[in-house]
Amino acid sequence: MNIFRLLGDLSHLLAVIILLLKIWKTRSCAGISGRSQILFAAVYTARYLDLVTSYISAYNTVMKIVFLVASYGTLYLMFLKFKATYDHNHDTFRIEFLVLPCVILALLINHDFSALEILWTFSIYLESVAILPQLFMVSKTGEAESITSHYLFALGTYRGLYLFNWIYRYYAEDHYDLIAIIAGIVQTVLYCDFFYLYITKVLKGKKLQLPA
C-alpha cells in the first residue's frame, strides 16, 4: 500500500458516498445515469468474486464489501425507492455497445484463460468505459448539478491516482499489470474533458453547463 493507492481508494470511496448521499438527501436521482450504475454493479460483481477464493487483507475485504453494498444500494435507490425521479428519457446510451466488446476483449486478452481471471479482466475493461452513459447524459442535458460534478470528479480522480500507484509499484516493487494500466489510462483520459470543465467552472462556483 502506498500513498497514491490509498488516496485513490479514498477518492473512490468518497465518490460512492457522495452519490448515495445526494440521492438520499434530495430523495431524487435526477441527472444520474442508471445505466452507468448498472455497469458499475457489474464491474464490482465480476471483480470481487475473488472475495470467496482469496484473502488479501482485512482492508481489501472490507473495501470490496463496501463497494458491492454501496453499488447495489445505489441501484435499489434508483430503480425502486426513488424510481419516479429517475430521468430515463435522457439516459439512453446503448450499454450493449460497451458490454459486448469488453466480453470479447476479455476472452482474447487476459492473463490466464480461467473463469475468475476472465471475469476480472472483463471488469477492468468495463470499468474503464462504464462512465460513458453518465457523460453522455450530461452532454445530452447540457448540464450537471454541482453535487453530480463532485461525484464525477472524485470518481475520475480515483483511477488517475491509481496510475501514479502503478508507476510507483513498477519502480518500488517491480510489479506491473499491463491490462490494468492500459485500461486505467483509457479510463482517466475519458474524464479529461470533464476535469477541464470542473476546474474552470464548478470550482469557481458556477454550475457545470456545456456551451450550446
Binding site: 471483480r47 488479501i56 481489501n60 499489470d177
Partner: peptide, 10 residues
C-alpha cells in the same frame, strides 16, 4: 503479473 498471481488491488 505472473499467471495465477492474485490481484491485490481494488
Amino acid at each position: 503479473p505472473e499467471t495465477g498471481e492474485e490481484h491485490d488491488e481494488l
